[in-house]
Write a protein that binds this DNA or RNA. Structure first.
Lengths: 211, 211
DNA sequence: ACAAGAACCAATGTATACACAGAATGAATT
DNA sequence: AATTCATTCTGTGTATACATTGGTTCTTGT
């Protein structure tokens, strides 16, 4: 693996996992020493991160880890809504019903995944991720999928802002199940509406637990 | 201005203006000689272009100017529709009616801008661009605006694919006028629908004149 | 003659040295 | 004592040299 890729992957993970918190200044020299590579691949990695919106050029000097401001959460969710509602519509028109019926079944029983033994909710979020992947595959649109992928990076970061509420997660799983069912049934309008409802609930929950 | 920025701006313009055609191989050494800077800023510029989707890493070695395939035009327009319809809805809810009434008026008379004296349609496309800017400003959503901005780069390239048909341009201006009017009237559903109609017409025109 | 392998070459990946700009700190003057 | 200017110093921008990888070509064997 190239050194620039390693640096990129490492920094990206550190930012998403909040090991590097918003506002942290990223000096090229410091990073190159910490990661054991020269400044050239570091610059490459920082350029990629900036293109993704995970870092921002600080006025004049250096890069900083970009803020996840609550003030902009509603804006982030507006974009998310635009993309995911349309994706749900298109998936409903084009999907293989079998796949989404299976996902609907799994999501209906997702409450079992939310246990005290798995505080990181690994299994739950993986199942939710599988729905995303299935939607992407069903839509079959490279541009739309790419836009969603760029967006999800920010959503993973946002996840850490809200308190981890088992009740909300179980509700969210039910909402996901509803979306999967609407897609399986080939009902674009319903799939879009269910997505709208889900995103509104998610946003309100986030705002209520962080303010 | 930094050398990397100059290289980026130059290459970007060359690609958008089709001075560099899709499939052209971009060698770092060749570019650094042609633009008179070293490879380092060239690499920086190419990384940015790749992030924008204007260039792609060629298998193993080098970069190529990315293809604008007709096979993917429908996908591009699906993303465009998702973003612009939602943008139109939000603009209708939040705009200052005066601005969009003025744009409506200008767009209604835009037929006059399409003359034999201006084969590049500079004035026409500038007016269309002003509508985009007004929508962005009315929406007031950084994430959505940024996604639209990224998309528009590709749309400008696509423009060259279709024949320049004055009749279609006049129709398009009328469709733009309808969108502006719906936004000015504060009717989200109408604005979204008008956008859907406009994009469908544009796509069908593109496909019919290129196939 | 065709295929397979090795060697060579060219272009990218990485490191480092140098240039330059901006910020911080200290001194001097008011 | 405070403010301003100058100097220094740290960190980024660029260039270049070196390493490495992947592709191409030439040769040899079947």
């Amino acid at each position: 693996m190239r050194a620039s890729e390693r640096a990129y992957v490492t920094l990206r993970a550190d930012i998403i996992n909040w090991h590097l918190t918003p506002g942290t200044v990223l000096g090229e020299v410091e990073l190159s020493e910490r990661l054991g590579v020269s400044r050239t691949p570091i610059r490459e990695a920082l350029a990629k991160l900036t293109a993704e919106g995970l870092t921002e050029p600080q006025s004049g000097r250096g890069m900083v880890v970009s803020e996840i401001s609550l003030d902009h959460l509603d804006e982030l969710f507006e974009l998310r809504s635009a993309l995911e509602c349309r994706a749900a519509e298109l998936a409903a028109q084009r999907c293989d019903p079998e796949i989404f019926l299976a996902l609907h079944h799994q999501l209906t029983n997702a409450g079992e995944l939310i246990t005290a033994q798995d505080p990181a909710r690994t299994d739950y979020y993986q199942l939710a991720g599988e729905l995303d992947i299935a939607v992407d595959a069903a839509v079959g649109n490279h541009y739309l999928t790419q836009a969603l992928k760029n967006l999800r990076v920010h959503l993973v970061r946002v996840r850490r802002l809200g308190k981890d509420n088992p009740t909300r997660l179980r509700d969210a799983a039910r909402e996901h199940a509803a979306i999967a069912l609407a897609i399986a049934h080939g009902k674009p309008a319903v799939a879009s509406a269910a997505t709208t409802v889900h995103l509104d609930n998610s946003l309100r929950h986030l705002l209520s637990t962080t303010h």
